[in-house]
Amino acid sequence: MATATTLPYRRVYVWELPVRVFHWVNAISIVLLAVTGFLIGWPQTIWMSDEPYQQYWFGWVRFIHFAAGYIFFFNLLFRVYWSFVGNEYARWSSYIPHRKEQFLNAWETLKVDILQTKEKGKISVGHNYLAALTYLGLFFVMLFQVVTGFGLYAGMSDAWLPWLFAWIVPLMGGDAWVRQWHHIAMWAFVVFTVIHVYLSFYHDVVEGRGTISAIVGGWKFERDDEFDK
């Protein structure tokens, strides 16, 4: 029974199914890649008592890393494609800042979220532009991981796909240096994940528009009067 102050909300279908599938395949493969990558960087000794013919666990860790690497790459390619055919929230134009209001919104978000001033303008239905900017940045880190990862993989694979990226190795001065930077970039994902997961929950709590459930079911809720702004 609505009272006078209860405001009507509208339901918006923000994240289409392909975007949601992309998100979770991406998130899971990145977590797998980071965990296996970290182990490749500094393997933990377990089952020390067994002889090599009895175990192959490090081989499996590497296998998971490479398999997840392929999935991660094709998933990313798919998302790039979808940014041309998907809805307005998924489009490339909402990630690449090219309009003044995008910068204004990013600045506004910084003020509201970090300095914690009161929200003045319209809350964006899709990403806020600050988030969009970090996704854009992360996209380049992802590309970097793909190039360096497959570049390294070319040294131990006969498949043609990794060889497309073999040029990065001489450019960076050898496998060792490619591995160094590939390893450093892993930390970008760790730092991103901490902030990203926290902020998703934060927005869900503070704005009460179903931010978290949106990335599962696709729906967000928007105050009626927001549409008039």
């Binding site: 393997p43 000794t45 377990i46 089952w47 020390m48 067994d50 002889e51 090599p52 013919y53 009895q54 175990q55 192959y56 666990w57 490090f58 081989g59 860790v61």
Partner: peptide, 10 residues
């Protein structure tokens, strides 16, 4: 084989 088995000198 020791590498693939995860058996390392520490």
């Amino acid at each position: 084989p020791f590498y693939d088995a995860g058996l390392f000198v520490e």
